[in-house]
Computed example of a mutant assay.
Amino acid sequence: MENFKEKKSQAVSVRMTPMERMLIESRAEETGMSMSSYMVQCSLGKELKLLNQEQKSAYK
C-alpha cells in the first residue's frame, strides 16, 4: 500500500484543542508533510523522519 497511489475520497472530522492542532501542524511541517498526510501516517504506525533545515527550505 505504501507505493500504491489511490485517490483519497474519504474524510474524517477530528476535534482537538487549538494547542493540539498547533503541535500537530508543527510536527507535520518538521517532516515536510501536510497535516492530513502526517495524521494518516502516524495513525498507521509509520516511522516518520524529520527534515533538516536545508530539506525544509527545499520543500517550501
Rank of each mutant, 00 (worst) to 15 (best):
M1I: 06
E2R: 12
E2N: 05
E2M: 08
E2K: 10
N3H: 09
N3S: 11
N3C: 00
F4R: 10
K5Y: 15
E6W: 05
E6V: 11
K7T: 12
S9T: 15
S9P: 03
Q10N: 09
Q10G: 06
A11Y: 15
A11I: 12
A11W: 13
A11L: 15
V12G: 07
V14P: 03
M16Y: 06
T17C: 03
T17H: 04
T17P: 01
M19H: 14
E20S: 12
E20D: 07
L23N: 09
I24S: 02
S26G: 10
S26F: 07
A28M: 02
E30K: 09
E30F: 07
G32K: 03
G32F: 02
G32E: 01
G32S: 04
M33R: 08
S34G: 14
S34W: 12
S34R: 11
S34Q: 12
S36R: 11
Y38V: 00
V40Y: 00
V40I: 10
Q41V: 03
C42W: 02
S43R: 09
L44P: 02
L44Y: 04
G45Q: 02
K46Y: 03
E47G: 10
L48W: 03
L50C: 09
N52G: 11
N52W: 05
N52S: 09
N52I: 08
Q53H: 01
Q53F: 02
K56N: 04
K56C: 06
K56L: 12
Y59R: 14
Y59W: 15
K60L: 00
